[in-house]
Design a protein around this nucleic acid. Sequence first.
DNA 1: CGGCATGTTGATTCATCTCAAAGTCTGTGG
DNA 2: CCACAGACTTTGAGATGAATCAACATGCCG
Lengths: 247, 247
Amino acid sequence: MRPHDIAEVRHLPLFRDMLKVSFEQLVQGAYAQTFPAGMELIRQGDPADFLHVVLEGSVELYANWENRLCTMAVVNPIGTFILAACIKDAPYLMSARTLERSRLLLVPASDLRAVFRRDPEFAVSTITELAGCYRAVVRHAKCLKLRNSRERIAAYLLKQSRNLGGIARFTLSVEKRLIASYLGMTPENLSRAIRTLDEVGVQVKGQQVTIIDMARLQAFVPPDPLIDGPDTGGATAGVSLPQGVAS
Amino acid sequence: MRPHDIAEVRHLPLFRDMLKVSFEQLVQGAYAQTFPAGMELIRQGDPADFLHVVLEGSVELYANWENRLCTMAVVNPIGTFILAACIKDAPYLMSARTLERSRLLLVPASDLRAVFRRDPEFAVSTITELAGCYRAVVRHAKCLKLRNSRERIAAYLLKQSRNLGGIARFTLSVEKRLIASYLGMTPENLSRAIRTLDEVGVQVKGQQVTIIDMARLQAFVPPDPLIDGPDTGGATAGVSLPQGVAS
DNA sequence: CGGCATGTTGATTCATCTCAAAGTCTGTGG
DNA sequence: CCACAGACTTTGAGATGAATCAACATGCCG
């Protein structure tokens, strides 16, 4: 594991406040590995062995049931996933695969559980992280239940814009089919719905999104911090979907 | 606060492992109160002041946006809610109201945060509780995205049955309109869909549910522990909807 | 016995999915 | 450098699912 990685991981909210010895213990048992694109990292139902930290690349969390499949989240650097499963020592609720060539840090779940029992600061960080993850999923569920597909798309685009500092022109960071699945609709439906969004001031050409009339778009889907998340002010560049998402 | 209540709260997974002094500190700052049916306990967006523990009665957690409303969960004794908001000292993501006359214990959020910083055991319990809450919402989101309304209803009925020990005949513990909202559909749609479920071995008359053909129902919606939750074996009697649900 | 909220049913509209086909993009190999 | 395969995207037509609106039935409580 490269020193640079160690430093970055150490700065994560989850790890930044813990004791030096605790962190070193975690790092010692952990190992970094690079995976090719499309690699299945974990499969839902498997026992939780490792906390995963995305150092480079991006990872899709998805779920399936009876031949159906849906995207639950995308994790970008530097983000973690499946914290909850590790803590509960329970089977993963979601599967994960790399969207591109990615480098991950794998921290043994047993180390994790051992450390937060000894290091109160790490326990507090874990609590905060989990609470954040929980709230992210609640917001996602609210979005699914309270908005129709057109509104979900509009809100998604608005959020992407806000994450980039409120700019009116940007590029979608993931494939549309994945966005469709994340937002709970078919690719065809997404495509059609996007087309109708020009009525509310949005133009999409390929991956290029242009918000023609920000006011009209915001009038169409009033952004709600209790659904769309707090305004980040563009500080968290590169985050395309909810950050902290465990299992 | 009655001694009997204190004992029950002390036996909750969240509180059972903490130090005696920690528990006493929490209880000292807390107070129990009885509310009439239909009382709004908290409103989404308000700052998180108290962790709520349901001692008697039942509480609905719901969310709204732009004149729309949906039920997120029902909490029964002895369950807690809005733990996450208290921890993050963030605004509630959901509102809560009593479904019937209910008695609650209110624990100041500041006490909570102070105590788990000093009592590692309580911190671990909090972590476990939160991880469980998180997983419950992920399962709910998976259900919404992977199943259509008819399947969600069937799975819901199956789960109710399982929670009661797998019996074939039981009474719905909440109003149908609430179930509809929880499952993400309109009451009309629920009513109609229930009617069509006789094809897969379910009969519903008013609040009375009779599973005529358990095998056929299970073939229609194969129960999945990664969506419907682990099999409780009927140990948690009286739980109608996911138990641990914070905000 | 009302009155009111809940539940059901019907007709209709609207939203969304499915299936099919054609268009677009991208990376690969010749 | 070009041709091509394969995946993604768009478009269209049609079927299905679900919401809406309205009316009626049911149940409960004062």
